[in-house]
Write a protein that binds this DNA or RNA. Structure first.
Lengths: 243, 243
DNA sequence: GTTTTTTTTAATCATTTGATTAAAATGTTT
DNA sequence: AAACATTTTAATCAAATGATTAAAAAAAAC
């Protein structure tokens, strides 16, 4: 131990190890993405990713220490670099998965052509409220990432929502033509996701200001599954009889 | 220079210097909070605070380096500690100022008893949209702070919005009694600030998804000064003739 | 059962980063 | 201008932190 001097001028670059095991191509794989969400009985790689997702999502990139991830995962610090090369690489991975997960709920309900816009809204809001109830700190994480690292996400946004988006705008344009809708698509989207997501993002401040408990909050969110679509519907037809 | 060894066991605590100069109590003070928002011709203390506010608000506490603050302020790194003791103290200061600034716009318009609820909403939304147009990254900063450091803010929230809040709930309760309003105060607040603030918080993602330019975005926000109060008004009277 | 490969561990490195210090520069008082 | 106080600077420290390495342990291959 303690060998006087480690090869000094040598660039650390190029790790010898190849690109991770070939994996699979065998016979009996034990547990691959089964139900077990916990860290028990998961591969080291999964343990690290789960711990990383938890901490990164909760505290952001800069405030998360690799040592904390290792401890949370119950593994040796070096394994983090062994499996993922660097903190940044690990973060990128987790981030992309978070992001995809978040957008999927939004996009999946837009593509069904047999639904009316109203029904689509009902489904999206409902799915999102359930989703956000389960992963409450995902939206703030994503807002931060997009705000601070636009470039890295830009590609994935277009890749993920690109097709859906054009479809949606098409639908909205059609509705507008028929005179059913008179609202800029931007306002529509902003209101839809604002009314749905914002209460979760601002839960801490809203709770303090309104004095609402956790249980009451959840009840209110469930209530919103009906309210938000109703409000959106009202918004779509402004020239009723007002003013 | 280079004095072999700096007093080793001495606790660094207690800085000798008193609690900063007494300040003022003189004759001719040059520029105190005048118009000059820039860093030119400002006191060292102000320069640091401005730079800190900019970087902290933009990147958060953990991602901001004291050296970056010093460089942005154009001062020696040691001056940061000389004037503010620690990065944390400086952050707390800036954070509290940001927070107060943010809540003021909300509270100030609630207290006027001569206004109807509708007029209050119009004023609040309008004031906030102007405010947010000027300080776009304030809301995300605040959401992060409240989410990650609830305790530190809790006190200030109650101090700042406490009286206003009770007044508002009183008003809303009264309106409810009169049958003018049938909406949980929580929903009301969530919608009001969600519809107003969320577009700014999610500006980057909204712009990518909708393809809206900066100019168009600002125009849409101006449009919202009229739209949001209108929508809020509609929401307050749900049992019209629907369903 | 031996060899070979993969995984895990403990120790250590190099850099970054918040903070401090002693001295120099600047300003103020008398 | 001398004496004192305040502000600024350059150098340095100590701790934290991301990353690497060599060897041990475990697993797989033969």
């Amino acid at each position: 131990m303690a060998k006087g001097k480690t090869a000094k001028g040598v660039k650390p670059a190029k790790v010898v190890r190849s690109a991770k095991k070939v994996k699979a191509a065998k016979g009996a794989e034990p547990n691959v993405g089964k139900g077990a969400k916990a860290n028990k009985e998961a591969s080291t790689e999964e343990k690290i990713k789960n711990a990383a997702r938890k901490l990164f999502t909760q505290k952001g990139f800069a405030a998360t220490r690799t040592r904390d991830i290792a401890e949370e995962a119950g593994i040796n610090l070096a394994l983090l670099n062994y499996y993922f090369r660097s903190k940044q690489k690990l973060f990128d991975l987790v981030m992309m998965e978070n992001f995809r997960r978040f957008l999927q709920g939004m996009t999946v309900n837009f593509v069904d052509d047999t639904l009316t816009m109203q029904e689509r809204v009902v489904r999206i809001v409902s799915a999102y409220i359930d989703f956000l109830t389960e992963f409450p700190d995902l939206p703030l994480f994503i807002l931060n990432e997009i705000t601070h690292n636009p470039s890295k996400i830009a590609a994935r946004i277009h890749e993920e929502v690109g097709p859906t988006r054009s479809k949606f705008f098409q639908q909205l344009q059609a509705a507008k033509m028929e005179g059913k809708v008179a609202l800029d698509p931007f306002h529509f989207i902003a209101n839809l996701v604002g009314l749905t997501v914002f209460p979760f993002v601002s839960k801490p401040i809203l709770q303090r200001v309104t004095g609402v408990t956790d249980e009451k909050f959840e009840a209110l969110m469930q209530e919103r599954k009906k309210l938000v679509p109703m409000w959106i519907k009202m918004m779509l037809l402004p020239p009723g009889g007002e003013k």
